[in-house]
Structures are given as C-alpha cells and as structure tokens.
Amino acid sequence: MIGNLPYVAVVIFVGLGIYTLMFKKNLIKIAIGVVLIENGVNLFLITLGYRKGAIAPIYTYAPSGQAMVLPTPQALTLTSIVIGIATTALILSVAMMIYKHYGTLDTDEVRRLKG
C-alpha cells in the first residue's frame, strides 16, 4: 500500500476531479475539476515511467553509469499536458460566452436545452 502511494494519489486526484464534475454547481469549478483529472492522469503516466535509483533519460552531463527512467511516459505526458491546456482554454472561453448570454454560471440555470 505505502509502496503504491503515488498511484493512490493519482486515484485521489481523479476522484476529486470527478466529484467536482458531479456535484459542483459552477461552470468554472467544473473546469477546475477537468484540470484536476488531467493532473492526476499526467502524474499517473509519469509514475508508471519511474524506475528506482535511475536518472533522467538525458545524456548531457548525466552522472554516468546509472539506469535511466523510461522515456515514453514522459513523451506521452508532454503531449497530454499541452492537450490539457488546449482543452482548458476552450472550456473557459465557452464558459465566458455562456456568461455573456445567460448572465450566470450556475449549472441549474444554464439549461435552456433540455427535454
């Protein structure tokens, strides 16, 4: 359990984000929830790539003769971080536009489309 604490932290992050999406009533809070899930998943990928007692996979000035952590998860995480900021920017822009037209950010009132 304690050895897998990073994974548990990941799960807590994802859970917090999902909780925010399900129960919080503010559009920007929902965006915060999405960012939290993103952070959790990014941490998950990096955690998967870690190798005990290893160094970063960069040969420039590295301490010699050691194992290196896995590079692929880092590449994936880079991609997913930039995707995350793109998503966040679009979500927030749309939320601002909703505010412009509706005058509110409450999810109970932002529901002209229903039924």
Binding site: N4, L48, G49, P57, P71
Partner: peptide
C-alpha cells in the same frame, strides 16, 4: 463504487518504481 474500483486498480498496479517489462523503453534508451 467508481472510486473504490480505481483504488483497486491502484493497489493492483505493479510496484512503484519497478517496471516489469521495459523492452520498448530500453530500446529507446
């Protein structure tokens, strides 16, 4: 329920810091 399943997956995950397979990444390195 969802959260507990995620926790189960976190506990079942391989031990932190000791990848079981790393063929692809070793090739890269």
């Amino acid at each position: 329920i969802f959260f507990s399943f995620l926790i189960v997956s976190a506990i079942n995950m391989r031990t932190f810091g000791e990848p079981t397979y790393s063929e692809m990444d070793d090739y890269f390195i």
